[in-house]
């Protein structure tokens, strides 16, 4: 009985901050507070009417889109080599790809400052794309590799024996066979990139800024409820993506051991 109460309490408690953020975004007061004073949509109007906010949101979306695409394509190539061609040291290579998961993000931030400045990419969009690719690759690689392990290599041989040239086999047989993995990979890396704060914080500059980092720095400066409105929008957006993901493949595809 007690364990049940604890379980229910935890389940209620987990989404509580989200509920509070969403509720407080509808306040009519000029400062962040909870419970809210009156109901209004003025902070949403301010967010969506602000060229600055819309620009950073655009940057974040573009960054996440490019990052997810590049990560997924790179993962497909890497997984192909490891799973299909059984390259030497394949498992070592896989482990290296997954290290950004366990490496402290603050340390990655520092390393990336050094790396990007030596490349001359610090504070640029290109630099952010590179870093976001590195950060999302672990999330992109696993579903792609899992899908590839599940796909039957005889499918490609069957296609070849039917006279299909390699490019046709790739587009019509190999890619469709791993499509669930690719979709999962794209959606997951998009979400990870779109929500990334810790490492990105080290690397933004006057010419490039992402939405979550902008939220963070606004919080430090002011307690304007517009931040709650932005956050609520982020929550909504991310939930929508997860919902789509679950509909298309089912979350267990990613959680499952490959």
């Amino acid at each position: 009985m007690t364990s049940r109460i604890i379980a229910v309490a935890v389940l209620l408690f987990l989404p509580l901050p989200i509920v509070i953020v969403v509720l407080s975004s509808f306040t009519s007061a000029g400062y962040l507070s909870f419970p809210i004073k009156g109901v209004s949509l003025r902070w949403y109007a301010e967010f969506l009417g602000s060229a600055d906010w819309l620009r950073v949101m655009g940057t974040s979306a573009l960054l996440a889109l490019i990052g997810a695409t590049v990560s997924t394509a790179a993962s497909l190539g890497a997984a192909w080599a490891v799973v299909r061609h059984r390259i030497r040291f394949g498992t070592v290579y896989e482990t290296i790809l997954l290290t950004p998961l366990i490496f402290p993000h603050a340390a990655i931030g520092v390393i990336m400052i050094v790396t990007l400045s030596s490349l001359g990419w610090l504070g640029t969009f290109t630099g952010l794309v590179l870093v976001h690719c590195i950060l999302t690759i672990p999330y992109a690689y696993r579903p792609v590799a899992a899908a590839l392990r599940k796909a039957d290599p005889a499918l490609e041989e069957a296609a070849a024996s039917l006279g299909s040239r390699p490019w046709r086999t790739f587009w019509q047989v190999s890619l469709p066979a791993v499509r669930p993995g690719l979709v999962t990979s794209l959606l997951f890396s998009f979400i990870i990139s779109f929500d990334e704060v810790t490492v990105t914080m080290f690397l933004v500059g006057p010419f490039v800024m992402t939405l979550p980092v902008q939220v963070f720095s606004e919080v430090l400066e002011s307690a304007s409820p517009v931040i709650a409105a932005v956050s609520a929008t982020l929550v909504l957006f991310t939930s929508a993506m997860v919902f789509v993901l679950d509909r298309v493949i089912g979350i267990q595809f990613f959680v499952e051991r490959d």
Partner: peptide, 28 residues
Amino acid sequence: AYQREIGMVFQNLALFPHMNVYDNVAFG
């Protein structure tokens, strides 16, 4: 393999799972 006029029926069949019967047969 794709240049040889040699067909193959695989032990596990290796039918294309994302295609229907017609498209499987039409593939070649």
